[in-house]
Amino acid sequence: MFSSFLSRFIQITDHFTEWLGKTIAWLTLAVVLLSFSVVLLRYGFNLGWVAMQESVLYAHGAVFMLGAAYTLKHDGHVRVDIFYQKFSAKQRAWVNLGGTLFLLLPVCIFIFYVSVDYVLLSWEILEESKEPGGIPAVYLNKTLIWLLVLTLSVQGLAEIARNLLVIYPKTTPPSDSISTAEKE
């Protein structure tokens, strides 16, 4: 019963994270096109708009902040795996569980804690760009910090559930939600 709940939670979280990651990936194309346009307009036509330049920064920030959970889901974060690559699936699950519980989630809590005043103040004053002609929504950009924490924490909980199902295999995790590390 509990393992079916965990499996369902993993499926829902993985589905959302997959959708978000693929959606956000399109912003990389926007970053490239906007960057190209900024350079072309600036050096080719001696034109430029601060809002256009800032939009590149906003989109770039969104890609990193909202793409972190997708990267976690696909086991794409940096890892020194001298020993890890030789571990069994159960040993890897223990390492991943410990890393998530003692590193990932505490860092997410810390990031949220230190950013509360920063983001709330920005919303309170509806912070705008300091540059004339800039984007008048800096508070939305700063909110990406909380979205990073939210998406990364929820995906972290899914990783905890996935690793628990590997460690205590009464039922196997859903086939579409097994991380790449467990497939090897």
Results as ranks from 00 to 15, higher is better:
Y43G: 13
L40W: 12
R79D: 01
F112A: 14
A59K: 14
K130E: 04
L101M: 11
D75R: 00
A181N: 12
K170G: 12
M65W: 00
I12R: 05
V149P: 02
L150G: 08
S88C: 02
S4G: 08
D176W: 10
F2K: 05
C108V: 07
H74A: 08
F9L: 11
Y113R: 06
V80K: 10
D81H: 05
V116D: 09
I125N: 04
F36E: 13
L103R: 04
S3Y: 09
L6R: 07
S129P: 03
Y118H: 11
S179F: 04
S7H: 12
E184R: 10
I10M: 14
L126I: 05
R8G: 12
F83L: 10
L6T: 12
T172N: 06
Y84K: 04
L152M: 09
I12W: 11
Y113P: 04
W49E: 08
H74M: 02
H15M: 12
G156F: 08
A59E: 13
V80Q: 11
A161R: 03
Y58L: 01
N46Y: 05
S7K: 14
S153Y: 11
Y84V: 00
F2L: 12
A93S: 03
S129M: 01
L120G: 11
Y70P: 05
L105G: 10
G67Q: 01
E127S: 00
K183V: 13
Y58I: 01
I145T: 07
T171K: 15
L20H: 03
V39P: 02
W26R: 10
A158Y: 00
V107T: 15
V114H: 08
K170H: 14
T100D: 02
W19E: 14
G61C: 14
D14Y: 06
F16I: 15
G156Y: 04
S153L: 02
T71S: 01
G98R: 03
L41N: 04
I82M: 06
E182Y: 07
V166D: 00
S129Q: 01
V149R: 09
R92D: 04
G61K: 15
A62M: 06
A137R: 09
C108L: 07
I145A: 12
W146K: 00
I109W: 15
V80C: 10
V38Q: 13
R8F: 13
A137K: 06
V95F: 10
S88M: 03
S4H: 08
L148M: 07
K170Q: 14
T100A: 00
V95P: 14
V154E: 09
W146N: 01
V154M: 04
L66N: 13
L120R: 08
E159T: 14
E124N: 06
V116H: 07
S37C: 06
I109P: 15
D117F: 00
